[in-house]
Write a protein that binds this DNA or RNA. Sequence first.
DNA 1: GTCGGATGTAAACGCCTGTTGACTAATTTC
DNA 2: GAAATTAGTCAACAGGCGTTTACATCCGAC
Lengths: 195, 195
Amino acid sequence: MTSSSAPIKRRDATRTRQLLLDAARHRFASDGYAATTVRDIADDAGVNVALISRYFSSKEGLFEACLTSSVDEMRRTAGGARLDEVAERIVEQLAGIDSDGFPRHLVLLLRSSGDARADEIRVGMLRTFAEKLASLAGWTEGDDELLLRAQVTIAASLGIALLRSNTRLEPLGSAGREDLIGPVTDLITAILRKP
Amino acid sequence: MTSSSAPIKRRDATRTRQLLLDAARHRFASDGYAATTVRDIADDAGVNVALISRYFSSKEGLFEACLTSSVDEMRRTAGGARLDEVAERIVEQLAGIDSDGFPRHLVLLLRSSGDARADEIRVGMLRTFAEKLASLAGWTEGDDELLLRAQVTIAASLGIALLRSNTRLEPLGSAGREDLIGPVTDLITAILRKP
DNA sequence: GTCGGATGTAAACGCCTGTTGACTAATTTC
DNA sequence: GAAATTAGTCAACAGGCGTTTACATCCGAC
């Protein structure tokens, strides 16, 4: 047997980059930017620390990459919903249907690094989402009240995501999709129903 | 004139403690625990760094003190409301009627230091508030659905507070009490109205 | 007035942070 | 298969962190 069960690690820059990105998203989302060290991330990824600087030029750069990759992933999954599907989509994100029940993509949008460029990406994404959501509810440019309501909806959803992920407040902490769909639907329809 | 406009600083431990506490609450709430340094806090308070260790024994200790003092203040202002007043009270906190439009007490409840004891205080407070709110809506022990709805309400409110305070997402960022009262009332009554 | 505890100061401590440069090892190119 | 390019390693760095220690200064009690 030349190499059967050996966990040989072929050198692969793309794969390494991805490992770092995944580990970083976990850490940044759950611990925040400042509390996360590059050594933590590298260890989680099973990769040498210096490679963070090589592939992302800095910790800030890695954070920005996390942000844009999460944003891309959200765009991909959140496109083209009807108003009555919005609650369902949000709950899917909250309950983390794709990963392990941890709404990382959402929580990242609340994590600031203090860096101006990263914050622009973050806030830009929030603004885009808010406008998209407002449009579904019949928004036209200049209607600040409805835009505000869309932003409140997003803020509320992010709050739920954050509280779920950083405290073990029960029953919210371990509520599943079926538990959340009721309250969240009520919340969203109540706010977005045009006054 | 012996001492007219002179800003002489009489030595006063109580006052110094309070200055540190105020500065720390500002910093911890707006930047988070890890991103805040003890030197930042001391400078803001106009006080020597070493006094943090003296009066609060550590940065953790200061954070705990911030938490309990904020919790006390919230208890004082949040006691004995009726269900139909809840939205108004929350909006008052969100709009920061007492201070400068920054809902620090609320945001602190979302800021984790990673320390176990501090997190217990934090989560304990959240639990208490959730139960109090649920009770106003007719909760009796064991009714997990209504408790969940109360927790969702709190999570949503905290999300609004956090988004308001750390992004400049307009119009949410600079919305006043009169702008928020509508959406927030809708939100709260929709979630808490027993299904 | 002076003594003693309380209050504030300054400098240093050891540790951990993000980042870098010189190096080795693997992979691709010809 | 040798050369050249890419991928990964290792150790050190300068700076900032929270904390401590030894010292100056103020203030109230006697």
